[in-house]
Every structure is written in C-alpha cells, then in structure tokens.
C-alpha cells in the first residue's frame, strides 16, 4: 500500500511560506536601523555644530566690548577653530553707532563702511545670511549684543551699541 503524502513537498519546501514574512521582517528591520542611525547621526552633527558656535561665542564675548583690533585677532582664532572642526564660519560685527542696530539687518547686505566681517568661504559680493543658506544645507546662527568702537577720531574712545552675528555651517 502506498502512503498518501498529502501536502508534504519536501523538508525545504514546507518552510517556503514562512520565508516571506521572515525576509520582509528582516528587510524592514535593517532599513529602519539604517534610517534611524542616519537620523541620530545628523542630530549628533547638529548638536556638535551648536556646541561649536557656543564655544566660538564664548571666545568672542570674553569682554562686553570688541574693538576693531580685537575683532581682527579673534577672527584668526575662530577661523582656525572652525576649520579644525570642518566648518565654515561667517562673523559680522555690526555697528549701530549713534543710530542703534536694526535686528532685521541680518538679512540685508553688509554695510562695508561700518561693519566688520570675518569669513572662511568666499560668499561672493555682498554676502548675507541668505547667501549662507544657499551654500549650506545645515547651519546655525547666533546673535549677541556687544559694545563697539564708534570713535571717529583715534584719540577719542566712544563705544556704541553693536551686534555680533555668527553663522557656522559644515564645509561641503
């Protein structure tokens, strides 16, 4: 008498239906881990960027007053700091001598007659914060109040209101 084997299709064939959910699960798991790893990595990079800009601001705001000469010295230091960490930096000391500072001016062109600028990347003529946004996918910005040199003559020391803009973004 021959025995009816029914649905038995071999030792491997019986496991074929279970392969589909297993493979699907493994694919979903691996792709999710890859996606989340990427997300966490970008969050870490952004946090590092923010920590760096705070370190730079600490360095630049040791005093409540930044003279033109001090700005030049600090510029070299922060450019080195940023380059060592793979970032570009844009620093502007905006002077509101006599008139106060417009905070909306972040987005306008630099007043080359008064503002002091320090940057690591050539952003073309009249760079603005928008120029940086066009050049970098991720960037952080910070603004601080500071006293600036408003002397018209070298023998007088008049200090007016100013604003320090700092932008930091990764080198492409």
């Amino acid at each position: 008498m021959s025995k009816v084997k029914g649905s038995f299709i071999g030792p491997l064939g019986d496991d074929i239906p279970s392969i589909f959910p297993l493979v699907t699960g493994i694919l979903i798991l691996i792709s999710s881990i890859a996606f989340l790893s990427n997300e966490i990595s970008s969050i870490n990079s952004f946090i590092e960027l923010r920590k760096s800009i705070l370190s730079i601001s600490d360095l630049m705001l040791q005093s409540g007053y930044i003279s033109n000469q001090t700005f030049e010295t600090l510029c070299d230091q922060v450019k080195n700091y940023a380059s060592d960490r793979g970032y570009n930096i844009f620093v502007r000391l905006q002077k509101g001598c006599g008139t106060g500072v417009s905070y909306l001016k972040n987005y306008t062109v630099i007043d080359s007659t008064k503002d002091l600028v320090c940057l690591t990347e050539d952003l073309g003529n009249n760079p603005t914060y928008f120029s940086i946004a066009e050049n970098a996918s991720t960037g952080v910005f910070a603004t601080y109040p500071v006293a600036v040199d408003c002397s018209e003559r070298n023998d007088e020391s008049v200090k007016g209101v100013g604003k320090l803009n700092i932008a930091l973004y990764p080198i492409k």
Binding site: I47, R50, K51, L54, S57, D58, L61, S63, G64, Y65, C97, G98, T99, G100, A142, T143, Y144, P145, V146, A147, C150, V158, K159, G160, V161, L164
Partner: peptide, 30 residues
C-alpha cells in the same frame, strides 16, 4: 540645554556691555 546656554550667554553679553556703552550713543534710539 543648548537653548538655555544661548539665552544665558546673550544676557551675560548684555550685562557686560553695560559697563562699556557711551550714553550719548543711546540718544538716537527710536
């Protein structure tokens, strides 16, 4: 924490600048 640090940094910078500002320079603030 970073947001708090930035805000406190901003206020500290403001407080420090008080020691340097010339009063005459504030006269044209609208």
């Amino acid at each position: 924490v970073l947001n708090t640090y930035y805000n406190l940094n901003y206020i500290s910078a403001l407080m420090k600048s008080i020691y340097y500002l010339d009063v005459g320079q504030l006269s044209q603030i609208k």
